[in-house]
């Protein structure tokens, strides 16, 4: 699975303004509402579901990356977006580091395989330090989109 298969380009946030965990989740969910990927009246339920998932264990998986996610019946395909915080946000990460890169995923309840393949793609690309560093340095949504496209074209993965 490629980034282009699940990242909603209009929902990409290059400069997250939120400075706490729930704020980031709300901001990214709101971006998906704005992009028409999820319905406005589902936003609170989706934010609550993502925060509930975080209680089971932070999705801050280390290296300044988090993959907040949930299943939700209001989507019929995997939707996601990317956010970057230049200052970093305390996300109770597994390694204790602040998180700068966020990949937020919402998947239909009956499609665990798609969710796994999105995680696979994200984690595979993030093994490349250059990709990680460039993403963290991105200043505009266009920069991020270009990096994701380059990653999709295997320009980072060895």
């Amino acid at each position: 699975m490629k980034f282009a298969d699940f990242v909603s380009t209009p929902a990409i946030k290059a400069e997250l303004s939120a400075d706490d965990k729930e704020g980031v989740v709300k901001e990214l969910v709101e971006a998906l509402v704005g992009a028409g990927q999820i319905k406005a009246d589902e936003r609170e339920g989706i934010v609550a579901a993502i925060m509930k998932r975080e209680e089971l264990g932070s999705t801050g998986i280390g290296r300044g990356v988090a993959v907040p996610h949930t299943k939700h019946p209001s989507v019929d395909r995997l939707v996601g977006t990317v956010g970057v915080s230049s200052d970093g946000v305390d996300f109770n990460s597994l390694d204790g580091e602040k998180v700068q890169l966020f990949f937020l995923l919402i998947s239909p309840p009956d499609r665990p395989g798609d969710h796994l393949r999105a995680l696979e793609n994200i984690s595979r690309q993030l093994r490349d330090e250059t990709f990680c560093r460039f993403l963290k340095q991105s200043k505009t949504a266009e920069d991020i989109q270009t990096l994701l496209e380059e990653a999709d074209n295997n320009q980072f993965v060895s």
């Binding site: 696979e120 993030l126 093994r127």
Partner: peptide, 11 residues
């Protein structure tokens, strides 16, 4: 964890 997720191991 990052490397384990790259396996995308389904049920």
């Amino acid at each position: 964890i990052l490397q384990i997720m790259t396996l995308a191991a389904e049920m």
